[in-house]
Nucleic acid binder design. Structure first.
Lengths: 227, 227
DNA sequence: TCGGCGAGTTATAGCTTCTAACTATTCGAA
DNA sequence: TTCGAATAGTTAGAAGCTATAACTCGCCGA
């Protein structure tokens, strides 16, 4: 009994239960963080008893890995969709910030405290490259009058990139600065390190991105095809 | 029986055991992260059995809070000492990066994934203000020809700072940019998000700080008194 | 119709944090 | 010097967790 997509009814049921489990897992994480995630509690919530959950996820780490993968996938899709519909760099920052504020713990699952010794599976790092690829596209080609900085030269000499993207060094530089500046503000904001200072992080981000290296570009999304 | 410092021998012993417990806790955290920290395991390591450890720390969270406090204290002292011995902003970044790379999990204990609902005790946030105060001092006074940016104006209008520091808005801006840019690069570096790209994060940091807002200052540490 | 796969169960081991109750030691003051 | 109180440590145990083992039941496909 297979449906048009090639899934048997058992496989469909399985996928649905897995999704339900992950849904409850996300709720627990949003409420109290990853450390408080309890497989037992989730099992009760979905109406099964303890060990039954191990039919769907081999271990607690396996469930968390699946959540990390979904988080990356969601971020990559969000960024890609925004870019494809004509959003510029500042707009992408807004989209990413919105995505992060929508579920801070999901953001920290990707960019938060790492577990020593943990190595994400290859398919997950591949998704992280997708995000980087969009940023590189959004950065576009460097303007004609680009003066290469020392870091540009350094980047040019150390291009053993894990994925080969044809972007020139100044574009890499710009994308890296975009990424690190946005993450710097955003992660501190989400972690509550700005509490007590009542400025608007969005304005800080805007200005940080306005002074990105190799600037005066990306203002007209129509130009991006020529990059 | 009190020594010159006013500590009884019992208090001295207590402090020593607490320190020994924290030492082992740091080792566990460095090896496997906070989630793997086990009070039972620590108790065995210091030669006492399980519950005895609760004489020294009321709970696991209490121990972790003490570690967070020590981490903040260590960072604040490190930054203050470096600044007082004439280190400029770029140098401070180097000192902070060195401090972070020396024990990445200690850095993430402060700046990593937050626990939803957790509020650090006031004495800890006070230490975080010490760090910020040093950064503000290191940023010095804005140059005479400073053109206020929109974010400067915003900062001027939203100065309900939790601690009142007399620094003008452009200095706040500069310090915030320093903090967020450094943290942006550093946290991604420590978390391993740059693996596969073999550039030197130190060079990126140097350039990010070189293009800080309201620049052309702090080059001569002798000027800092006039700030 | 029947065999087998798989989803679910309970029982259990071994770990965790943390409380309760108890013992023994040590400190300090009368 | 002796006695009372505070304190460091113990074991026992409750409640929770992850994870495995062994088992039962029901559905799906041949």
């Amino acid at each position: 009994m297979t449906d048009p997509v090639g899934q048997s009814s058992r496989e469909r049921y399985r996928a649905q239960v897995r999704a339900e489990i992950k849904q409850h897992a996300w709720e627990q994480i949003a409420a109290a963080g990853v450390p408080a995630l309890s497989l037992n509690a989730i099992a009760k919530q979905v109406g099964m008893s303890g060990p039954a959950l191990y039919r769907y996820f081999a271990s607690r780490d396996d469930l968390i890995t699946a959540l990390i993968r979904d988080a990356y996938r969601s971020l990559a899709d969000t960024v890609r969709a925004a870019f494809d519909s004509g959003t510029d760099l500042l707009g992408l920052a807004g989209v990413i910030r919105e995505w992060a504020r929508d579920d801070p713990q999901r953001y920290f699952l990707i960019y938060g405290t790492p577990v020593p010794g943990y190595h994400a599976p290859d398919d997950i790092t591949a998704i992280s490259f997708e995000v980087m690829a969009v940023l590189l596209e959004a950065c576009g080609a460097p303007p004609a009058d680009t003066r290469t900085t020392p870091f540009d030269a350094h980047l040019r000499d150390h291009r053993t990139w894990a994925f080969d993207h044809p972007a020139p060094a100044p574009t890499l530089h710009r994308a890296l600065s975009f990424w690190t500046r946005l993450h710097g503000v955003l992660s501190l904001e989400l972690a509550g390190h700005f509490t007590g200072m009542e400025f608007d992080p969005e304005l800080l981000i805007a200005e940080e991105l306005d002074t990105l290296p190799h600037g005066d570009r990306g203002l007209d999304p129509a130009d991006r095809v020529s990059g």
